[in-house]
Every structure is written in structure tokens, then in C-alpha cells.
């Protein structure tokens, strides 16, 4: 099992992360602060104000990322955003399988560090696409941008790829 506390500690020490816990209970730790956008090797002194809710069982449930910037696209499912402004950064099954595999090989602390880096990489990637869309006036998610199909189709797509691999 990946310890939630170790995940939170690892996340806070990642470069360009300025998050601090604002509440914690048996099920959830909530962090608020900024993430620097530096995806794709492009550096900009631009941060995004975010809330990250970290569940106890992070190897099952992806930490919830909500972004409070005005430039977040309000395009719903096509932009991987829920009505509460949280973002769906990854397919849960892929997250689970990946972390399960890592947990089998590495120590819980190292696995937590890996999970933090995985989460951050996916989060920044999606935030950077929202930012790009804002800057360039994109209304629709471009067809050549990677994403899983929505709903059950996405799961099937993943499992078929996983099986083939």
C-alpha cells in the first residue's frame, strides 16, 4: 500500500509545487496552492492555483485536481473537466495498474514518490493544454491531442491496448 502521507510529502517537494495542507481527515488530505506550468519542457513563470485532494487509498483513487484559474476551459467532458472544476487527468484503471506494478517492485516510500511524479506530470500536461487553448482561442479539444475515449469506450480502448502490449 502506498502511504498517503508519503505521497503528500513527495508532492510538496517536487519542483515548481507550492502546495500546503489545509485540512486532513481519515479519508482525505486537502492541499491548496500553486503548480508551476512547465510541461513539454517549456518554461514560463506561470503558475496555476489548484486544490489537490489526496485520498487514503491513492493506488485505487487518483487524487482529485481542481484548478481555479479563469483560463480553465469550461468545455465539460471534451476538456476533461467536471462541473466542480476538477479535472480528470488519467484513466483510473491505468493509474491503478501502473501503481500496483510499481508497489510490487519498490518500497512504499519510493512508490509514493513515483505516484506523486506521475500525478504531477499528468496534471501539468492537462493544465498546459487548457492554458494553450485559452491563449489560442481553441473551442474544441483538437483531434490530434491524445485522450482516452469517454466512458466505457475509453476503458475498452485501454484494455485492448494493454492486452496487445
Amino acid at each position: 500500500m502506498i502511504p498517503c502521507d508519503a505521497f503528500v510529502s513527495a508532492l510538496k517537494t517536487c519542483s515548481g509545487v507550492n502546495l500546503r495542507p489545509v485540512s486532513a481527515c481519515a479519508l482525505l488530505t486537502v492541499l491548496v496552492g500553486s503548480l508551476q506550468l512547465d510541461g513539454d519542457g517549456i518554461v514560463a513563470p506561470l503558475t496555476a492555483l489548484c486544490t489537490v485532494s489526496v485520498p487514503r487509498d491513492i493506488e485505487v483513487i487518483i487524487p482529485r485536481l481542481a484548478c481555479h484559474e479563469h483560463w480553465i476551459h469550461n468545455g465539460g467532458a471534451n476538456w476533461h473537466i467536471f462541473s466542480d472544476r476538477s479535472l480528470c487527468i488519467e484513466l483510473p484503471e491505468r493509474w491503478q495498474k501502473q501503481l500496483l506494478a510499481i508497489s510490487r517492485v519498490f518500497s512504499p516510500k519510493d512508490a509514493a514518490k513515483y505516484a506523486a511524479e506521475y500525478f504531477l506530470n499528468s496534471a501539468r500536461w492537462l493544465l498546459t493544454r487548457h492554458r494553450y487553448a485559452f491563449e489560442n482561442g481553441l473551442a474544441e479539444w483538437p483531434q490530434n491531442w491524445p485522450q482516452w475515449a469517454h466512458g466505457e469506450s475509453g476503458r475498452r480502448e485501454y484494455f485492448s491496448q494493454h492486452k496487445a502490449a
Binding site: L91, R94, V105, Y114, N121, P146, Q147, W148
Partner: peptide, 11 residues
């Protein structure tokens, strides 16, 4: 261990 290529989803 490498981190998977980012690919967002919507349920």
C-alpha cells in the same frame, strides 16, 4: 521506471 505518457479521460 518511466511515467506513462499523459492521456486524460472522462468517465
Amino acid at each position: 521506471a518511466r511515467i506513462p505518457a499523459p492521456r486524460p479521460y472522462f468517465p
